[in-house]
């Protein structure tokens, strides 16, 4: 990964993992045309991917102009009237929208703090195993829940933690206090995080495991010969080896900070009400596709999310550079 190898190089160079700029070609004075001709094979490589982004993303991204019109699906964009920033004013003036933003950010941060480290920890635990058989077996088990759809996950959690569920049944049978988890707004966000941890932790280990697998073994060897124990090797070899991939994942995650599990929320929002369960995507859903038909609002919310995401990615990328990482771009 980006990441492990960069770190490997830097670690090999001195172990501080900092400050390595990307290799730059010496400034050449070749004319643009010559450069294009020289790199024609690179351009050929670029072509399919570039065409893909131009056709499917840039073309469709123009659809965002409907945020400034009164478009609805029965007419074309050209037939709609410009309304300027009216839709944005309506959206920003709606307290419900801001509640949804706050909820979204809260859930996102909780995920960052409580979910994000779990796959990392699990990957490190798996990585530390000496038995390849057990390691592979556990890996194969933990990534299974990723393939269970949200409808089933929600039903399973309700079956276990719900008012008529296994846990409360057990507590009631033994004369203990029952716990109110499903449908309790105060417990809702921890519940969401628990569901995500159950469903995706194992899946999330894959990228870390791949990164860990590529940490240069000779570094461990050298470090061990220098007398470093397991902890020191962990701090000085393992962590620097995957630091870049962690940074990369974090930066990209920040770009989507205003998107949290739409399907997961849509299924459970009603149980706790909008106060705890409305996120931007569900707010938009009920106003557009879910019956309201306000597609300009959906586009406006998309622009809002994109702008915030762009700012965060830009800032996080800068911070990453300060820390001596490549980040997503340079």
């Amino acid at each position: 990964m980006t990441a492990s190898t960069i770190a490997r190089n830097t670690a090999a160079a001195g172990g501080d993992g900092a400050g390595k700029k990307p290799p730059r070609v010496p400034r050449d004075r070749t004319s643009l045309w010559r450069k294009l001709v020289r790199d024609r094979l690179l351009w050929l490589c670029l072509l399919p991917g570039l065409a893909y982004f131009l056709i499917f993303h840039l073309g469709a991204a123009f659809g965002m102009v409907i945020a400034f019109t009164d478009y609805w699906p029965g007419i074309s964009v050209a037939q709609s009237n410009l309304v300027g920033v009216e839709t944005f004013q309506k959206m920003f003036g709606d307290p419900d929208f801001w509640h949804a933003v706050v909820n979204t950010v809260e859930i996102s941060l909780l995920q960052l703090v409580f979910y994000f480290p779990v796959p990392l920890g699990l990957a490190l635990l798996l990585h530390s195993l000496t038995s390849t058989t057990i390691k592979r077996l556990v890996q194969n088990v933990v990534y299974l829940p990723h393939f269970i759809s949200w409808v089933i996950v929600v039903a399973l959690f309700q079956q276990i933690l719900g008012g008529a569920g296994v846990v409360n049944g057990f507590l009631a049978d033994h004369g203990l206090h029952t716990v109110d988890i499903i449908g309790n707004p105060d417990a809702f966000k921890p519940l969401l995080i628990a569901q995500v941890i159950w469903k995706d932790s194992g899946w999330g280990t894959i990228i870390f495991l791949a990164a860990l697998a590529q940490v240069d073994d000779t570094l461990y060897e050298a470090s061990a010969m220098d007398g470093a124990g397991p902890w020191r090797r962990f701090w000085h070899v393992t962590l620097p080896g995957i630091r870049s991939v962690i940074v990369l994942l974090l930066v990209l995650r920040l770009g989507e900070v205003l998107s949290v599990g739409f399907e997961q929320l849509l299924l459970q929002r009603d149980a706790v009400g909008p106060g705890a369960g409305e996120i931007i995507d569900t707010y938009v859903f009920y106003k557009s596709l879910g019956g309201g038909g306000d597609f300009p609002l959906a586009a406006a919310a998309g622009i809002f999310k994109g702008v915030i995401g762009a700012i965060l990615v830009y800032a996080a990328n800068k911070v990453a550079h300060r820390l001596g990482e490549q980040g997503v771009y340079r």
Binding site: P22, P23, R24, V25, L32, K35, L36, R38, D39, L42, L46, L50, F53, F56, H57, L58, G59, A60, A61, F62, G63, M64, I66, P73, G255, L289, F295, A298, A299, G302, I303, G306, G309, A310, V313, V328, Y329, R330
Partner: peptide, 25 residues
């Protein structure tokens, strides 16, 4: 690194990541 405009193209692609197309477009 020698690709002319490579950085701009990358930034353009990141832009599409941040602004995914809506369902109808």
């Amino acid at each position: 690194p020698q690709l002319v405009g490579g950085r701009k193209i990358l930034l353009g692609i990141l832009f599409t990541f941040l602004f995914p197309p809506g369902m109808i477009p």
